[in-house]
Design a protein around this nucleic acid. Structure first.
Length: 147
DNA sequence: GCCAACGTTGGC
DNA sequence: GCCAACGTTGGC
């Protein structure tokens, strides 16, 4: 799951312990959240920084449920087209698990064979939530310590 | 249902 | 801060 640390960082997640991952307004990303199960491992990826990459580990704490911000007209995530009876946008709650001792950078991910097919490393990719494979999970955690 | 215009993402 | 890439919107 990607985040711009200026808006919400891994440290913010660590501080709060758990966070509803709201504001996702992309159908593909939403569908990936719908396929998540509590307990699933999550990599937290920092984007729009000097060295973009995976900085920490989290886990899924709830299954997908309607994102309340879509109904809040004062919120930037408000969606006037979403109806309470048929909510358009979902979120999952994400819990902090740990920090990586060093960033596994996008540059590094590009050089790892297990990521060669991942949209994550493709230019112009704008998906903020992407599935990862067991092999990707293992490969990243083999390179760094989780603390 | 096409597609131009627009808005947003995110690496650089 | 720039701008390529891409998803969404809405006129036709």
């Amino acid at each position: 799951m990607k985040t711009e640390p200026e808006a919400f960082s891994l440290d913010d997640l660590a501080e709060r312990g758990q966070e509803p991952w709201d504001g996702i307004r992309n159908y593909q990303a939403r569908n990936f959240m719908r396929s998540m199960t509590p307990g699933d491992g999550v990599f937290i990826y920092h984007s729009r920084v000097l060295i973009p990459g995976i900085v920490g580990v989290a886990d899924v704490r709830t299954s997908a449920h309607p994102d309340p911000t879509q109904f809040d007209s004062s919120c930037k995530y408000y969606d006037p087209n979403s109806k309470a009876e048929t909510p358009r946008w979902d979120l999952v709650d994400v819990g902090f698990r740990g920090r990586l001792t060093s960033v596994v950078s996008l540059d590094e991910l590009r050089r790892m064979s297990v990521f060669s097919d991942s949209p994550l490393i493709r230019k112009g990719n704008r998906l903020s939530i992407l599935p990862i494979t067991e092999a990707q999970w293992t490969a990243v955690l083999e390179r760094v310590e989780l603390v």
